[in-house]
Design a binder for these strands. Structure first.
Lengths: 183, 183
DNA sequence: TCCATACAAAACAATTTGTTCTATAAATAG
DNA sequence: CTATTTATAGAACAAATTGTTTTGTATGGA
């Protein structure tokens, strides 16, 4: 990838990220983004077809990084047998979200972030699937597995949202306990 | 209210509702609405400040009707002691949603319906609060009540969404069982 | 050094928005 | 039934936004 392309892309991501913490996604215009990123109009459209694709690609970068960080690798036996709450992948995820107190967290709480949450849930869903054994199995006896996974996923997101909205007063451990308590 | 106003308002609501079942809210323009409703541009803005207010007022009408229909009145002792799943206000709500298979249900499943779901949840939340006794009380011992109510509310919505997305194959009773099973 | 190409700048048509005007039709009051 | 009020249609309007196109520049990679 051309160095110029990398720079332009980074500048747009940076400007977009800053703007996301100031106003909601759909009230944001391409005009504002390119002004702050200091790139030409045609340049923006050369990189991203629409504003939506920009958000999608940003989310992809962010979430790949986050989920990779908390997911155990095949050679990593940390979590394989860690079916306990105090060492679960979900607690690590919450801690990770707590640590990176940058722009990402604000996206959870704000309004008009359906796209963002959708992309996050898509990644989280895989994590839930891979860790289903952590949750009560008997549920699957009378609940469709699909509904069960959907429920765990959105419960996690709702818990995080509640946490952020309340000013992150609780510790990551408490939030994880709440989450496991709910599901 | 002037008869002309009522007619105009009804025409706009009708056109808006039709369009809602065809495309998502934020891809919808005032242009399309007034064209289908066959009213003048200035007339629309005389009734509704923005598209958002239109959606808000439509939701208000719909939800007031729905929640009033399933909520017991003070003189109505049907549900007061009905803490069982098979006669709960939630089952009645699901049945009500199943029966009125008009435009409302489509709004649950579609994308870009955050505003709609927000308004629905606001009304549902009151219903949940008033029926908290129906759910396990010991939860409140270690869970903030606020989080607990939020969880029940969004679990209901998520269950309905799952139901719609899967083509409404299950009966209202099954859906209610799933809901109670989850919470 | 040379070539390809990413870029800036500007202009552009097409939409959409929200406002304002006038004349007309309809509703309501008396 | 008449008079007055008022909602509406229709049109025109400025402003903002979008996505495309063009031309010249300068930067990167070979």
């Amino acid at each position: 990838m051309d160095r110029r392309q990398r720079k332009t892309r980074a500048a747009i991501f940076q400007a977009f990220t800053e703007l996301l913490s100031e106003k909601s996604f759909d009230k944001m215009t391409v005009e504002e983004i390119i002004k702050r990123a200091d790139v030409g109009r045609a340049t923006f459209y050369a990189h991203f077809e629409t504003r939506e694709y920009l958000l999608k690609e940003l989310c992809h970068e962010l979430f790949c990084h986050i989920f990779d960080a908390v997911s155990p690798t095949p050679s990593d036996h940390r979590h394989i047998f860690a079916c306990e709450e105090h060492d679960s992948v979900f607690l690590h995820l919450i801690k990770h979200l707590e640590k990176n107190d940058n722009h990402v967290l604000k996206l959870f709480a704000g309004k008009n972030n359906e796209l963002f949450l959708g992309y996050f849930k898509r990644g989280l869903r895989e994590l839930v699937k891979a860790n289903l054994s952590m949750f009560a199995r008997r549920k699957s006896d009378f609940l469709p597995e699909d509904l069960w996974i959907t429920h765990i996923t959105s419960t996690f997101v709702e818990t995080i949202r509640w946490w952020i909205d309340n000013g992150k007063q609780e510790s990551a451990e408490s939030v994880a306990e709440y989450f496991f308590g709910l599901v």
